[in-house]
């Protein structure tokens, strides 16, 4: 008997990470080296759930800040192309970011500075989790109810789950694996989604598209 899946929703509450703000690229390097793991996660992975109007130019706050306030688009592009979910750990992500910044520090003649009012502030978040009252008992329930779930639910179960689950996978895949071989094609399609560079609306559309494919739905008829 498979477990029921409780759809949850979430929001963030931000707090200061306890690291001094950075005013220039050298300070950014120094503070990234010592900031808490949760702060790196916030600035790389929680950007997607913050309010925005359109797809931001850059998916992480470091790239955004170096472009907008240090006026260093080359560095911004190098940082922006990082997909944190390709790193095996936050430590690996930290090393990668530091390498890129250190390389840039070697290249530039002058350390770029931001205006005083536009320093980089290191934050971290508490993820507040809510019950939505929506319970899925089978993959068919997932196919039918996915269009109505909130973007906060998409973030919590498909994105944020990766730091919460033991195997680093999303909640849907882990739950579907309880339904035997028939669920494998769907799980594989979910694993193929390159979600980091999508907005949550785009990700939800992608998920809905996948669960509506005939090869997926036919397996559960």
């Amino acid at each position: 008997m498979s477990m029921a899946f409780q759809i949850r929703d979430c929001s963030l509450i931000a707090r200061m990470a306890g690291v001094r703000s950075a005013m220039n690229l050298r300070e950014l390097e120094e503070r990234i080296a010592v900031c808490p793991d949760e702060s790196l996660f916030h600035h790389f992975c929680e950007t997607v759930i913050r309010p925005t109007f359109d797809n931001p130019d850059y998916n992480n706050d470091f790239a955004m800040w170096t472009s907008r306030y240090l006026q260093d688009r080359k560095l911004a592009e190098r940082l922006a192309v990082i997909n944190p979910y390709k790193c095996s750990s936050i430590d690996e992500l930290r090393k990668l970011v530091l390498e890129i910044i250190q390389e840039r520090l070697m290249e530039v003649d002058h350390i770029p500075w931001a205006p005083k009012k536009d320093q980089f502030h290191f934050l971290r978040s508490v993820t507040v989790v809510y019950d939505t009252g929506l319970i899925l008992n089978s993959p068919v329930d997932l196919f039918e109810r996915l269009p109505e779930v909130a973007l906060g639910s998409v973030y919590y179960h498909f994105v944020e789950a990766r730091r919460r689950t033991e195997n680093g996978l999303d909640d849907f895949s882990n739950w579907l694996s309880e339904f035997g071989d028939g669920a494998l094609p769907l799980i594989e399609l979910l694993h193929e989604i390159d979600f980091y560079f999508m907005s949550l609306s785009e990700l939800k559309l992608k998920l809905v598209d996948i669960v509506n494919r005939s090869e997926v739905t036919n397996a559960f008829k």
Binding site: I13, R15, E38, S125, V126, T127, V128, V129, Y130, D131, R164
Partner: peptide, 18 residues
């Protein structure tokens, strides 16, 4: 209220609202 709840339960990365 989330902050108050967090101070009551201890500040962790996740906070179950209910």
């Amino acid at each position: 209220m989330t902050l108050m709840l967090g101070l009551k339960r201890g500040l962790a990365n996740h906070l179950m609202a209910s």
